[in-house]
């Protein structure tokens, strides 16, 4: 009797052991493989780190002729475009999520939700081509001249909108990035809004609250941490985007002083310069070092989003 049970449990244990080991092996494999990518980058970037030291992070120089490289311009461009993209996309994504969970008629929710999610399925090179051929001309011919004429002379905010109207630049790149991350943030928001127990909302409606008041005082406080976590995931994606940004950012290794000014991001600079970098050169090393810095930035963003998401993940 006891033996039979033991055999049965051993059979189950064996199955469990095999499956658990399999998943564990896969986990370790991925850790080693992906860890190796990060380590390779660090080793590849070491000559640049050694040559320029901490100055690599603060120098705005990028001069392939003199072999002087600094990371400040692409790091600045990466952070600024990603943050601007968030400022644009979060309100839009929130509006979409609010509409999809509370306002839209039932029959419309699925098709509209799917359409918004499809924005995430468009390949990034297509976003680049669309941005370059559709958005850039609109920016160059209509929006930028109009803004420069109307706002450009104002004190304080005026200087933000100066410079020649190339159409490309920090703001255009941020707009394209915003479009790309809207579906991610909107989908996360919609999903967490749906996790709010109906009882809470119904009690508030019962008290005579309007839809907006229910959203503001019940749904948002209840889901705040998860919403911020979702936003951080969108930010992570914006940081590493290459092709779409490369097409529209203007690709200049100077710190942009205006929103219309050209700049560069880490991913874009690496993609542009890599094909013309010879193995063993300091330039290649500087590019790999930039890649490593990008990993560190994503690492920080993820760490923050982890901390913010934790309470909800435990439920």
């Amino acid at each position: 009797m006891q033996q039979a049970r033991r055999t049965a449990s051993r059979g189950a244990n064996l199955g469990d052991f095999v499956f658990a080991s399999l998943t564990r092996i896969a986990g370790v494999f991925v850790l080693v493989l992906l860890g190796a990518i990060i380590v390779t980058l660090f080793i590849g970037g070491l000559p640049a780190f050694e040559k320029f030291g901490v100055g690599f992070l603060t120098s705005t120089d990028w001069d392939p002729v003199q072999e002087v490289y600094g990371a400040a311009v692409p790091v600045f461009g990466t952070v600024v475009t990603a943050v601007l993209a968030l400022i644009v996309s979060v309100p839009l994504a929130f509006g979409i999520a609010f509409y999809l969970t509370e306002l839209a008629p039932q029959w419309l929710r699925r098709p509209v939700g799917t359409a918004i999610e499809l924005l995430a399925a468009v390949p990034s090179i297509i976003y680049g081509m669309w941005g370059f051929f559709v958005i850039v001309p609109i920016m160059a011919q209509y929006i930028q001249p109009a803004v420069i004429d109307s706002v450009g002379e104002l004190p304080l905010i005026g200087p933000l909108f100066g410079g020649p109207a190339f159409g490309t630049g920090i703001l255009t790149a941020a707009l394209i990035l915003a479009v790309m991350i809207i579906p991610f943030i909107a989908a996360t928001m919609r999903d967490v809004f749906l996790t709010v127990p109906p009882v809470f909302k119904e009690s508030a409606y019962g008290l005579g609250c309007t839809t907006w008041e229910v959203m503001r005082s019940i749904v948002i406080p209840y889901t705040r941490t998860s919403v911020v976590g979702g936003i951080m995931l969108g930010l992570g994606r914006a940081l590493g985007e290459t092709m779409a940004v490369t097409f529209v950012i203007g690709n200049t290794n100077r710190i942009a002083t205006t929103l219309f000014g050209p700049g560069n991001t880490i991913a874009s600079l690496v993609a542009l310069e890599f094909p013309e970098s010879q193995s063993g050169s300091l330039k290649l090393s500087a590019l790999l070092a930039l890649g490593f810095i990008l990993f560190v930035i994503s690492f920080i963003v993820l760490a923050i989003s982890r901390v913010l998401l934790r309470p909800r993940l435990k439920v």
Partner: peptide
């Protein structure tokens, strides 16, 4: 193959330069 340009804006590829010139 790439230098520290003192002025102007960059564009990707011949097509990028041509289109930017056309737009500006």
């Amino acid at each position: 193959t790439s230098v520290k340009w003192p002025a102007g804006a960059g564009a990707k590829g011949n097509d990028g330069v041509a289109a930017t010139v056309r737009n500006t």
